[in-house]
Design a protein around this nucleic acid. Structure first.
Lengths: 223, 223
DNA sequence: TTTTTATCGATAAATTTTTCTCGATTACAT
DNA sequence: ATGTAATCGAGAAAAATTTATCGATAAAAA
């Protein structure tokens, strides 16, 4: 049903790697220089062999009895994801979520930068948030092609999501990060990453429900 | 390494269900009353048997040749997650992400409501966002117990996350939805749901990278 | 009424992902 | 120098998840 690239990386691995990355950044800041999978496993509550396997996907090799040099490991992950070549993106829908993403400087770390925002509310067009100007939606498609932007972020209400996507795609965008709780139809060759905040909440609330019902158990959960 | 409850539901299923839920809400709004897995599968690009299996976890049964009544299906999912009993939550860290979550009314749909926010910046203590007052952090623990709050949301900078968690846990919170890019250590019996926005971005950027390298393929991706 | 078709539920097969095992390597202690 | 312990990598085994198959059921068509 879904075409996969030749050498596919397990999606769970793909989802764990950013977690390692954040954790390793913290660790490096705390003064540590070398770390083993055993050590990581203890802190992240994961099995060492799995961590080893995940990290191996980025092409790194560890040293027996020692582990990995954290700095090299961080570079390896950065390179794996391509976080070295900065990706510029447009954002549509300057509500609270949109502003949160614009202001969140943390994305720079991941080679990701929102360079312009679009909305069709006259109240906010022309205003600037976190150094990013809000432009009228009508300019979206044209600017996409002119600036050769390939990634779009949708933070509109759900009823406006499809239109935003259509305009993006018309402008040549091939990757859409969709925060609107709506399904977006796209032609082939466009990748949609649906980011439904409710998913995390749902998983959490279900686990709590089970916890309440059936005694105590410990569980750490991601994303 | 991780204890699981007796009857565990596959996590992928848990993550797909909210997506079905949103989709079905849309569908119902558009006038449809009955839907089959085949139909859902076409729209969501998933295999019908998988959808059937996922939905079966909520306890619903379909009718051959017909499918499911959308309204009944929605109820079934709501009940499965316990979205009928509203869960009240506290939020710590009233930055942009915090405000985005406070203002996002959409969570009501999932039986989730942020009833108070905490921060230790004098600039915002006392202010109100989306009807939610910002209180000083020092009141967190005490209010947690007094109001019997069980869910906490952390949207602080990473260095403040552990402290926020500790205060929450001291107040009796057992479920933490953590948006800070930091690992939180918790005692047994506390569930942490790490919500790392960068994960979605990482997955998207990796897929784009592969797409650019190896010709075209279509892919829809979630969370 | 009978036949055809779509869809379901249940189960089996295939695939993917995680976990385990084991020999090899390196640091540290003796 | 030699032995011991920690950790790695690679591959095997186990577990979980997805996909396919098949008989049953209900609606629609003949």
């Amino acid at each position: 049903m879904i075409n996969k690239p030749e050498f596919s990386i397990p999606e769970p691995t793909l989802r764990r790697l950013p977690r390692y990355y954040n954790y390793l950044k913290e660790l490096l800041k705390s003064g540590r220089e070398i770390v083993s999978c055993t050590h990581i496993g203890k802190d992240l509550d994961l099995d060492p062999p799995q961590i080893r396997k995940d990290l191996a996907y980025t092409g790194i090799r560890g040293v027996p009895k020692v582990g990995y040099q954290i700095e090299v490991l961080l570079n390896s992950i950065e390179e794996f994801f391509g976080w070295n070549n900065m990706d510029e993106a447009f954002l549509v829908g300057v509500g609270n979520m949109g502003r949160a993403l614009i202001d969140y400087q943390g994305f720079r770390r991941y080679g990701f930068k929102i360079v312009a925002a679009f909305d069709n509310s006259p109240d906010i067009i022309g205003k600037t948030f976190g150094g990013v100007e809000v432009l009228p939606l009508s300019k979206l498609t044209n600017l996409c092609s002119r600036m050769n932007i390939k990634i779009g972020v949708i933070t509109t209400p759900d009823h406006a999501a499809q239109e935003a996507a259509d305009m993006m795609i018309a402008g040549g965008i091939i990757g859409i990060w969709n925060f609107a709780p709506a399904e977006i139809r796209t032609p082939e060759g466009v990748i949609v990453q649906n980011e439904n905040l409710a998913t995390g909440l749902a998983v959490l609330s279900k686990k709590l429900q089970i916890l309440k019902q059936s005694g105590k158990f410990r569980q750490e959960v991601d994303q």
